[in-house]
Design a protein around this nucleic acid. Structure first.
Lengths: 113, 113
DNA sequence: GAGTAATGTTGCAATGTTGACAAACAATAG
DNA sequence: CTATTGTTTGTCAACATTGCAACATTACTC
C-alpha cells in the first residue's frame, strides 16, 4: 500500500468516528450486538439513519453484520478504538488543566525559586 | 458536562483527525516541535493550509503552540492518539483478513468437523 | 401462492459543513 | 522599510446530515 493511501485509509477511519451519534452507536455495540431497530429505539433516531451510519462503520471495518431472519445484527470489531476515545479525551483534559495553571501563575507573578 | 456535549466533544477530536494531511502533521510533530513554515516545506503544502490545520488541532487540544520571534512552534500534546491510529488500522487489517478467510471457506465447502 | 407485518436499505432534496487555493492582512526582526 | 513568518478572508466545489418516502427481504398466516 502506498503512502498516500495509508493516510487516506487512516483518515477514513477517523471520519467514521467523527460524529456523536456514530460514537453512541459504537458504545452501545461495545456492550453487546444490536440490531438496527433496537438501536433506533434506544437512540431515538430514525432507522434509516442508524442503518446508514452502521454501513459507514462497516465500510471501514469497525463493525460487522450478520443476518438473523428479518433482523440484521451488528457487532463491534475494533474495541480498542473506544479506548482511543477516552485516551484522547483524558489527554485533552490534562492539557486544559495545564493551560488554566499557566493563567493562575500569571495572576500571582511572585516566583518561588 | 452533559451527555450530548461529551459526545460532541469526542467527535470533534476525531473530526480533527479525519484528514490525511492533518495526520501527517501530527506524525511529524511526534518526532519534534515544528514551525508552520518548516511543516509547509516538508509536506509541500501552502502555509495557510498548514496554519489552519494546526489551529484546528489546537482547538481540540491535540497540539499547543509557542511563539519564538517570528516563528510559531507547534508541539504534540496527545501522543497516545497516534497509537490509536495504528490500533485501528491493525484491527481493521485483522477484520479484512477474516473476511478473506470466510470467502476461502466458501470456495472449498468441505467441512472438517 | 397471496396477503400482511416487521425489519433494513436506498434514493431524494434541503440545509449545513468542510476543503483548497489565492490574496490580503498582521506581527516581528533587523 | 523590508523580509520573513503566520493568520484570516473570500470564493467555489465537494461532501455530510437529516427526514421522509419508496422499495426489498423475511416470517407468518391463511
Amino acid at each position: 500500500m502506498n503512502d498516500d493511501k495509508r493516510y487516506e485509509f487512516r483518515a477514513s477511519i477517523f471520519k467514521a468516528l467523527a460524529n456523536p451519534l456514530r460514537l453512541r452507536i459504537l458504545e452501545k455495540l461495545s456492550e453487546k450486538p444490536w440490531c438496527v431497530c433496537a438501536l433506533a429505539a434506544e437512540l431515538h433516531t430514525d432507522k434509516s439513519i442508524i442503518s446508514k451510519y452502521l454501513s459507514q462503520l462497516r465500510e471501514v471495518g469497525l463493525v460487522e453484520d450478520e443476518k438473523r431472519g428479518t433482523l440484521v445484527e451488528y457487532r463491534l470489531v475494533a474495541p480498542c478504538v473506544l479506548q482511543a476515545v477516552s485516551c484522547a479525551e483524558q489527554t485533552i483534559a490534562e492539557h486544559k488543566k495545564r493551560i488554566l495553571g499557566e493563567l493562575d501563575s500569571l495572576e500571582s507573578p511572585e516566583q518561588k525559586g
